[in-house]
Simulated assay, not measured.
Amino acid sequence: MSLTEFKASLAGDAPAPTLSPPLAGLWWMAKGDWDRAHKIVQEDDAREAAWVHAHLHRVEGDLGNASYWYRQASLPVAKDALDMEWERIASALLGSLEP
């Protein structure tokens, strides 16, 4: 799935069932359902899920918790705009599934 297709899928009521948990979390975040997104990535121990988890806590404004999850993902704390980070994560997960 391309980033354009992923964004277009946001017009639907639910993410494609074939999406990985981190991508499903990003999908729900984009739809404004932070709680559902958080539940999905919290139950996944993959590095990619930690990256999305970090983004979610950054969105929430809990930078201490976000920093913890960036460390779990072995990534630096993001400093760019939230929407830019969301798109960067989605692009990376759709392209290579590696942060």
Rank of each mutant, 00 (worst) to 15 (best):
M1R: 01
M1E: 12
S2Q: 04
L3M: 12
T4R: 14
T4I: 15
E5I: 10
E5R: 15
K7E: 15
S9C: 11
L10A: 10
A11Y: 02
G12R: 04
P15F: 08
P17T: 09
T18M: 03
L19W: 15
P21V: 06
P21E: 06
P22E: 01
L23A: 01
G25V: 10
G25L: 12
L26E: 05
W27T: 10
W28C: 13
M29R: 09
A30C: 05
K31W: 06
K31R: 11
G32V: 05
G32D: 01
D33N: 06
W34Q: 00
W34V: 12
D35I: 07
D35K: 02
R36Y: 13
R36M: 13
A37P: 05
A37H: 09
A37L: 02
K39W: 05
I40T: 00
V41G: 00
Q42G: 06
D45K: 13
D45V: 12
A49D: 07
A49F: 06
A50M: 07
A50R: 03
A50L: 00
W51K: 05
H53C: 00
H53G: 10
A54W: 09
A54S: 11
A54F: 06
A54H: 07
L56F: 11
V59R: 04
E60F: 11
E60Q: 11
E60N: 13
D62N: 01
L63D: 14
N65P: 08
N65M: 01
A66R: 00
S67D: 14
Y70A: 14
R71Y: 13
R71T: 15
Q72M: 15
A73R: 02
L75I: 14
K79A: 06
D80K: 04
L82W: 01
D83Y: 02
E85H: 10
E85L: 00
S91V: 08
L93H: 01
E98P: 12
